[in-house]
């Protein structure tokens, strides 16, 4: 379990992370979304022991991460800007990883390389950006990590590759209870892959939830009555948002769908439709409720 307790990281006078706390359980695929400068990369670098926090604790299974080989050997980090040795091929990089990760599995590396259709002997400089991402991901996954950290890795992969990578991660999660932490700009990216989601803004986690819960906790109801009505009609329901145009009202409701439907039907509406919300819409309304303008946070 990755636990961050009130971690603060400053660069000079700029505070990148401000007393950030979060817990990532094992076997979870954790998505972290936020705009540029929100602190996603900083967070990952704190968790992987690259940065030392100014204050706060970062532990994996209650053991501190920083400069702790016992803990660090269990994870691998795939950064947004990839590092390759000059003029290296994938094979050369595999050797580097072999030297630096005791758990590096050369067979897996070869299998994955073949599956992804990459040539391990070619100079990586000749790879496209997406292929470089794939190469880096393959190398990282071949270290058989218990924890794998992706910094905006998926943003550069095409859908086919993304599925391949997802499946490898899923396989690891199933078999070894591996944990993955993925950051991204885009909710859409994370929606399919992750089971936990957190929103990072200005160095702090504003919102954290299970994805499935997110999707089911809020829903939209379109309702119309042939009589006059207003918001007061729906007092028994947890309405987060109420928009009325003419006789049709759109409600964003939090709660149990079945119960709400039943309640509404008892009011004899002429129109009653339940519409699912996209994850983005869920976020927007949740942020709204928290007092943030979501549009300011995500590009």
């Amino acid at each position: 379990m990755i636990k961050t307790e009130k971690a603060t990281k400053k660069f000079g006078s700029f505070t990148a992370l401000n007393e950030l706390s979060c817990t990532i359980p094992d076997g979870c695929i954790y998505g972290l979304v936020g705009s540029n400068g929100a602190g996603k990369s900083t967070f990952l670098r704190l968790v992987t022991g690259i940065y030392k926090p100014e204050s706060g604790k970062i532990t994996i299974d209650d053991k501190p991460v920083y400069e702790n080989p016992e803990v660090k050997k269990r994870f691998v980090f795939v950064p947004d800007e990839l590092y390759f040795l000059p003029q290296a091929s994938m094979q050369r990089m595999a050797r580097l990883y072999e030297h630096t990760y005791a758990s590096f599995n050369i067979e897996r590396f070869q299998n994955l390389t073949k599956t992804f259709g990459l040539d391990p002997k070619v100079n990586l400089n000749g790879f496209s950006k997406g292929m470089k991402r794939q190469a880096a991901t393959i190398l990282a996954l071949s270290t058989m990590p218990d924890y794998i950290f992706f910094d905006e890795t998926f943003d550069g992969l095409d859908p086919v590759m993304r599925n391949l990578v997802k499946n490898v991660i899923y396989s690891d999660v199933c078999e070894r209870k591996a944990t993955a932490v993925i950051t991204s700009h885009s909710l859409r990216e994370l929606e399919d892959t992750c089971d936990q989601l957190a929103l990072l803004h200005k160095g702090g986690i504003i919102f954290e939830s299970d994805i499935e819960n997110l999707k089911t906790s809020l829903f939209k109801v379109q309702v119309a009555f042939d009589k006059e009505y207003d918001k007061e009609l729906f007092k028994g329901i947890d309405v987060m948002n109420f928009v009325k145009k003419g006789s049709v009202a759109n409600l964003i409701v939090r709660g149990n769908r079945e119960k709400t439907i039943t309640l509404l039907q008892q009011m004899n509406p002429i129109v009653l439709d339940v519409l699912p919300l996209t994850l983005e819409e869920v976020f927007i309304y949740e942020m709204d409720a928290l007092g943030y303008a979501f549009k300011d946070m995500i590009i």
């Binding site: 670098r45 992987t48 690259i50 016992e70 950064p79 800007e81």
Partner: peptide, 16 residues
Amino acid sequence: NKRKGSDFYHSLSATR
């Protein structure tokens, strides 16, 4: 001298 490289080596299990 490069963030990329520096971050990579510091994320390894070996101590500094």
